[in-house]
Amino acid sequence: MQLSQVLQALGQLATGIAPRSRDIRPLEIDFHETDAPSPFEQAAIGTWKTEDGAILIDLRPDGQFHKQKPELGARHSGRYAVDRSKLYFEGESGWVALGKLKRGTLSIGEKRFHKA
Rank of each mutant, 00 (worst) to 15 (best):
Y80L: 11
V96A: 08
S77A: 13
D83E: 15
E71D: 09
L72V: 13
G104N: 02
T47F: 01
F113P: 06
L106S: 01
F89N: 02
H66A: 13
K111G: 01
R79N: 07
H76Q: 09
I57V: 15
K49Y: 02
K86G: 03
R75W: 07
G94S: 09
K49E: 09
A97G: 05
V82E: 04
D62L: 11
K111I: 10
T47G: 00
I57S: 00
L101I: 08
I108P: 04
R79M: 10
A97Y: 13
D52C: 07
R79Q: 07
L56Y: 08
K67W: 05
D52V: 05
A74H: 10
K115F: 00
W95S: 11
R79A: 11
K100R: 14
L72Y: 01
Q68V: 10
L106Q: 00
K86S: 12
I55D: 01
A97M: 13
G104W: 02
D62H: 06
Q68N: 08
L101M: 08
E90I: 15
E51M: 12
E110F: 08
S93P: 01
E90S: 14
K67V: 04
W95R: 05
L59S: 06
I108V: 15
A81Q: 13
R112P: 02
E71T: 09
Y80D: 06
H76G: 07
R84M: 15
I55C: 05
I57A: 00
G73F: 08
H76P: 04
G99N: 04
R84F: 07
W95M: 08
G94M: 09
V82K: 04
R75M: 05
K102G: 12
T50D: 05
D52N: 13
R103N: 14
G78K: 04
R103Q: 11
S85T: 14
Y88Q: 14
E90H: 13
L72K: 09
L101H: 02
G73T: 10
K67G: 13
E71W: 00
E110W: 01
K102R: 15
L98M: 11
G78Y: 07
K111L: 11
G63E: 07
A81P: 08
H114S: 10
K49P: 03
K49H: 07
E90Y: 12
G78E: 04
K100N: 12
G109I: 12
A81S: 15
F89H: 01
K69A: 15
G104H: 00
S85K: 09
S85N: 14
E51Q: 13
D62F: 09
K115N: 00
L98R: 12
F89P: 06
Q68D: 10
V82F: 05
H66L: 12
Q68P: 07
D52K: 06
L106N: 03
P70C: 06
H66Y: 02
A97P: 07
D62S: 13
L87R: 02
P70W: 07
R84T: 08
G94A: 02
K86L: 12
R84Y: 14
E51N: 06
G99A: 06
R103Y: 01
L101V: 11
E110Y: 07
E92F: 01
G91T: 14
R75F: 03
L59A: 04
A81M: 14
G73D: 08
F65Y: 13
K115Q: 03
D52H: 03
K49G: 03
L98G: 08
Q68M: 15
K100Y: 06
